[in-house]
């Protein structure tokens, strides 16, 4: 109930804010303008994930490009990429495609701390991530929305673990399409409580197939995602309101908190994955 109340408060905040903004939006107009952005020195972006599911696991490396430059992101080839754990296992990754590095043998296991090290163009980058014990949902259910007929809310239930720092991401796929919303959870305020978590940014209808991936990881990965969500670009779906820039409008944008050293962008995460599926009917 606590989590629910915090969520409804947040929802209320957003709601109130929207009402207050309505006046401004009614009279505002938008147009595309030319903005002169600095050309920044390209910076390395490393993204690597190891899970408790069977491999191979992938590390991708590329560089930032000028903001308005269309086209691809330059991959970084020829890097020396290694994943090792704290029990002496270590593996050099193979570059199978330009900028894409793949493991062969290593298997992610809960409780181990993994190290990613990358050597490229004379620079070294490292990151640590500890894979927690997997957390499981008690259930994933749907309820008919009492306020809006035809609509359903989807809620998952789980027990937060006492005295363990639980950091969670829930990836929601509706009809196979991943929701753009970052559903994150941490137990700073709810340690040991029984949690009901609703995917309230989504609207669900009868017949929808819902898949939820429950990801658990350590605090460094959580901090990365929780500071990432307000600087990524949202595809504007069927509704044409330009709220894609909403976060940039009201928040203070900054690069996410990465666990990689040497100013690299991106992150390295040791993640457990559990998958749940329901069909609303």
């Amino acid at each position: 109930m606590l989590y629910k109340s915090i969520k409804s408060m947040k929802k209320m905040h957003t709601f109130v804010f929207c009402i207050l903004l309505t006046a401004a939006i009614c009279i505002s107009c938008t147009d595309v303008i030319t903005v002169d952005l600095n050309t920044a020195e390209p910076r390395i972006v490393i993204e690597g994930v190891i899970t408790d599911q069977p491999g191979p696991y992938r590390v991708t490396i590329h560089k930032t490009t000028d903001y308005f430059k269309p086209g691809d992101f330059p991959p970084v080839s020829g890097a020396v990429v290694r994943i090792s754990d704290n029990t002496g296992n270590s593996e050099l990754l193979q570059e199978t495609d330009t900028g894409i590095y793949i493991t062969t043998d290593i298997q992610g296991v809960s409780g181990k701390t993994y190290t990613l090290s990358v050597e490229s163009e004379g620079e070294n980058y490292t990151a640590f991530s500890t894979m927690p014990e997997a957390l499981e949902l008690d259930s994933l259910t749907f309820f008919a929305d009492e306020d809006y007929p035809d609509e359903y809310s989807v809620v998952c239930f789980f027990q937060d673990r006492v005295d363990i720092e639980d950091y969670i991401r829930l990836k929601v796929f509706k009809e196979g399409v991943l929701s753009q919303e970052y559903y994150l959870y941490d137990d700073r305020l709810t340690d040991g409580m029984y949690i009901d978590y609703e995917f309230f940014e989504e609207t669900f209808y009868s017949g929808n197939e819902i898949k939820v991936d429950l990801l658990t990881f350590d605090r460094s990965v959580y901090e990365y995602f929780s500071t990432l969500w307000n600087i990524v670009t949202y595809d504007e779906g069927e509704d044409d309101d330009d709220d894609g820039g909403g976060e940039a409008l009201w928040g203070q944008p900054a690069n996410p908190l990465s666990n990689l050293t040497n100013n690299a962008l991106g992150y390295f995460g040791a993640v457990t994955v559990k998958t749940y599926t329901i069909i609303i009917q």
């Binding site: 920044a40 910076r43 590329h62 903001y67 992101f73 992150y267």
Partner: peptide
């Protein structure tokens, strides 16, 4: 703060910032 570059992470385009309130 405007982005000075962009990159891809988690399958999405992310803005790259070089300094706070630099624009």
């Amino acid at each position: 703060s405007f982005p000075s570059g962009k990159y891809i992470v988690d399958g999405r385009i992310a803005n790259y910032y070089t300094e706070r309130n630099g624009y």
